[in-house]
């Protein structure tokens, strides 16, 4: 899997490219899981925007990673223990694709059954996104906006100050 290649490689440029490949592959996986909307987003975001952003960051910082100074044994141990705990947790989970799983039996049939005559929009995902869960989406939009403002505050403020310093000199 691509993820393992990301662990091994030291060139950050390759890492950025591999993470783009990784999201494209995961988009394919999402299509097979019936989540076309999500796959669409993942492909556009992961393979398009985040790769460009990664490259932008690399251009501003450095291209290579230094070899780690401490041994990877302790992190590996932590990761294995956490993984084992999670696997133990899944033993009680319902089987994959089980129509009687708890996730399938509460609100979902309600949304699927009601949206045709209440909202009359073929794409149920859109109907839930914009109407039933409009508050959620409003919150998400606000988060995206806040993140944008944060990036602006972090990296475009300094330039002006620098220019001022130059003028002072």
């Amino acid at each position: 899997m691509t993820a393992f290649a990301v662990v091994r490689t030291q060139s950050l440029f390759a890492t950025a490219m591999l993470s783009g490949v990784f999201s494209l592959l995961s988009a394919l996986l999402l299509v097979t899981l019936d989540a076309v909307d999500v796959a669409f987003t993942e492909a556009a975001v992961g393979a398009g925007i985040s790769t460009v952003l990664m490259l932008g960051t690399l251009a501003l910082t450095s291209r290579f990673e230094r070899p780690p100074s401490h041994s990877p044994v302790i992190p590996l141990f932590v990761v294995l223990v956490t993984g084992a705990a999670l696997v133990y947790g899944t033993l009680d989970m319902p089987n994959f694709g089980d129509p009687n799983a708890p996730a399938q039996t509460h609100v979902a049939p309600d949304y699927i059954g009601r949206s045709p005559h209440e909202i009359d929009v073929p794409n149920i995902v859109t109907a839930i996104l914009a109407s039933y869960r409009g508050f959620d989406t409003l919150g998400e939009t606000a988060v995206v906006f806040t993140a944008g403002v944060g990036v602006l505050l972090l990296i475009s403020g300094l330039r002006r100050r620098r220019r001022k310093e130059k003028e002072d000199v």
């Binding site: 909307d37 987003t41 975001v45 992961g46 925007i49 949304y111 995902v125 996104l129 959620d136 998400e140």
Partner: peptide, 19 residues
Amino acid sequence: YSNPLPHVLILTAIVVGVA
């Protein structure tokens, strides 16, 4: 039909994630 609710949640989460 597959359950649309997780799709909605993840759809927004991806965009928020990239932000």
